[in-house]
């Protein structure tokens, strides 16, 4: 049996076929394909904050991208460009905390990395152009910003990415203080691009979108960790 990987989802009003603006739970097909191609069996997790019992059926968790995390969760006032979804925050924070408690492998993508940070006691920049003075992390609607990242030698992400360090970003918030996590990757402007928790089996957050290229380096590592497979020594040489 393949490791079962839960993926958090959006709730939006969607239109398809004869249906118009029907409240739907969805996640880009890229995520399910990335998990499937990496050898996992994806299931989608609609937001639900009653309990985190669903984790008993899962071997790993992907926190998908999406809207901003509510600033009240990291003790900040809401900025003018911040757009939140309380149902996702409540459901995903509960799920993430329970997953961390049982040391389940977690991959956070974009919003997912920001959620990891907030759960670890960290904080976010609410609008990067105000902080960095440029739009390179979100060049235009539906356009990914491509750039090269720098990774900390010996980190998990450095081992996984190898020589090809080009990443594709689309976000307007970013990690300010990583809390108890370790920042292990940076954009050229110094913005954190990856966070890790070296004290746990597999906790990795990336600010970019590895699902778009179905990056088997990252999703494969998650699935391997979910299956309980030991990492290649090269991926954790200094740990």
């Amino acid at each position: 049996m393949r490791p079962i990987i839960g993926i958090t989802t959006y709730v939006v009003s969607a239109s398809w076929g004869v249906w118009h603006d029907l409240p739907s739970t969805l996640v880009p097909h890229d995520y399910t394909e990335a998990v499937r191609l990496a050898g996992g069996r994806p299931v989608l997790l609609p937001p639900d904050d009653l309990d985190a019992d669903v984790l008993r059926a899962l071997d790993g968790l992907v926190l998908a991208g999406g809207p901003d995390v509510d600033p009240s969760l990291y003790g900040a006032a809401r900025g003018p460009f911040t757009e939140t979804r309380p149902d996702r925050d409540a459901g995903e924070i509960a799920l993430l905390r329970a997953a961390l408690d049982r040391d389940m492998p977690v991959l956070g993508v974009c919003r997912g990395m920001q959620l990891l940070t907030v759960a670890a006691g960290g904080t976010l920049h609410q609008h990067l152009p105000d902080v960095l003075g440029h739009e390179k992390h979100r060049p235009a609607p539906a356009v990914y910003g491509e750039h090269d990242a720098t990774f900390a030698p010996g980190s998990r992400i450095a081992g996984l990415m190898g020589e090809d360090v080009t990443i594709n970003c689309f976000h307007h918030q970013g990690v300010a203080d990583p809390g108890s996590l370790t920042v292990t990757g940076w954009a050229e402007d110094g913005l954190p691009e990856t966070v890790e928790d070296p004290g746990r089996r597999f906790v990795l957050g990336v600010q970019w979108h590895p699902e778009v290229s179905r990056d088997v380096r990252l999703f494969g590592a998650l699935v391997a960790a979910a299956a309980g497979v030991e990492e290649e020594p090269a991926a954790c040489a200094d740990r």
Binding site: W16, P23, S24, L26
Partner: peptide, 24 residues
């Protein structure tokens, strides 16, 4: 069981794994 379906929402037009929330 869910769709793998081209859907539109907001400014997005994408292939998604999806299902109406009524089932959930």
């Amino acid at each position: 069981t869910a769709y793998a379906q081209q859907v539109k929402y907001g400014h997005n037009d994408m292939m998604a794994g999806m299902l109406p929330m009524t089932y959930v």
